[in-house]
Design a protein around this nucleic acid. Sequence first.
DNA 1: CCACCTTATGCTCACACTGAGCAAAAGGGC
DNA 2: GCCCTTTTGCTCAGTGTGAGCATAAGGTGG
Lengths: 317, 317
Amino acid sequence: MTTPIAVGLSAVIVAADANAPYALATRHADGATGLPHGRFDPAGHRTFELGLRDWVRAQTGFEPGYVEQLYTFGDLGRELPLAELDDAPTDARLISVGYLGLTPERTDISAFDAVWRDWHRYFPWEDHRKGRPDIINHAIAPALLNWADAGGKNATARTSRIHIAFGLDNQPWIEERTLERYELLYEAGLAPEAARDGGRKSLKAPAEALGEPMISDHRRILATAIGRLRGKIKYRPVVFELMPDKFTLLDLQKVVEALLGQPLHKQNFRRSLDRSELVVGLGSFTQATGGRPAELFRFRREALREGHVSGVQTPRG
Amino acid sequence: MTTPIAVGLSAVIVAADANAPYALATRHADGATGLPHGRFDPAGHRTFELGLRDWVRAQTGFEPGYVEQLYTFGDLGRELPLAELDDAPTDARLISVGYLGLTPERTDISAFDAVWRDWHRYFPWEDHRKGRPDIINHAIAPALLNWADAGGKNATARTSRIHIAFGLDNQPWIEERTLERYELLYEAGLAPEAARDGGRKSLKAPAEALGEPMISDHRRILATAIGRLRGKIKYRPVVFELMPDKFTLLDLQKVVEALLGQPLHKQNFRRSLDRSELVVGLGSFTQATGGRPAELFRFRREALREGHVSGVQTPRG
DNA sequence: CCACCTTATGCTCACACTGAGCAAAAGGGC
DNA sequence: GCCCTTTTGCTCAGTGTGAGCATAAGGTGG
């Protein structure tokens, strides 16, 4: 008999407000967190997406709107603990299909064993809104470069990968490279998951600099989701899936900044929005801002039908 | 006993020259063509990519260089005929993971039952190098709009999807939307595959306008590959994976044009390449061009290490 | 009521890049 | 030497970008 295959569906459900970007996480017995996920049912689910929606609904009680497939992970050895969580035969080969879902509000999930988590808790090095985090230069870079030096004839290649991924040595910080950065940490044995999955020794580095791990390969899927979202936001109007019906331009900017982990120039942000014709002013104002009242805007959903498909402008690229 | 799952790995192997973009296709008994593909072996393959490379090597005799995952298709009902080609149990649920591979030359595959095919044979409406193909306005658009009108309350939505996908009604033609266009044809029952997969009637439209079908869902995977490649070429230097060691700037431009299905402005193309620092002149010249001899260039592979990751410039966006 | 804080919004300006085209250079063929 | 072809250099107007200055319009504490 051949090895059976099991397909796991995992969802990164994202919400965001002016303070932070959030991912929906489920709690597990040992205190670890993971993503909402479940097994794809080959007999009952007509498509992956329908299966995923079923699982998310069951585990968190709401229907995700925007959903897109991220990536399918199939490598051996990074998914082991997940198999134990299910009732399926543990000899099955587990394949993991990751999805990204966006929702405009952090729905009430108190009835479920789930929690909305600022995703920087898992990736503390990704938040550059208040400047480059110190942990990169003080903890992460030294540990990684240490690993690179120990790479023998791979040392040069490793070093240049690290420079490019983390923006060392005059390289720019490119926010989409989230997965590249996480994978480097995993490969270098700095991510706790690497030690857990066996093989590599866990190197020394301050734990708080390396972020909280997740079960199975979920942190990898989360990293993929963040990178994809950061890229997509620039050329498709997907931010609006994360916004309430009415919002001020500063609200919108803060959400974009939270997602990108990068501050933006206010006036230029507005100007590019103006030109994009993606939003319209409603004529009403809110003074909840603490300063001059701000006009409320809404997303012109018709714009999607008109082929206006730009995203938000961000410096350089 | 639950329904078993089988994972099919399919590869779109792309090559290109000044005349056309090519995809590697395999021939089947009834004259139909498909993509190189095989079953993922959960016991023998450590990763999808390694499995895929095995299959491609076995079916075409060469080792693809650049490889990237495209998408995982899991919907019921579009993959049936493939199951019959294999010896696996036909009650299995088939999942299809598509990959894109790039190669600088059309290797000799005469020993295999395979052929390099201009991909426009499958998608004749995608080649706009000599202007917008007549078949769009004469055959495709009328048939699609006909289907839209029959859509009852979906008619408006269908019409606008068609306009946006095929650049009707003053909408721009966006070359990346390859999959969107193919899926519209499939949904409308115009693609022969739709009738084959059952359910939908095959509508009337001149067969030569609709392109040649492929087995299983392979034309869908090919469409995905083309769209992805067309997008990626613009922000990553992937064209060079399709070029020989030495080439003239016109060679490069012709290859880009073949991939995009769109003509480019020569001087501006050169200027942007200049600025990108992705290529260096070799100081030697070729007079195989029929005019003034052209300098030969090579790709500066070091540029990848330096973080120069731009692609080729194309008009607008 | 005023000085002062906060945020919103309008506007300017230098600079870079883009789209488009003109023109000269440098081969081959007759 | 003339004509054809393709390469290569250059110009120029228009547009978008990055950055900053200035003003508007609320609230608050004296």
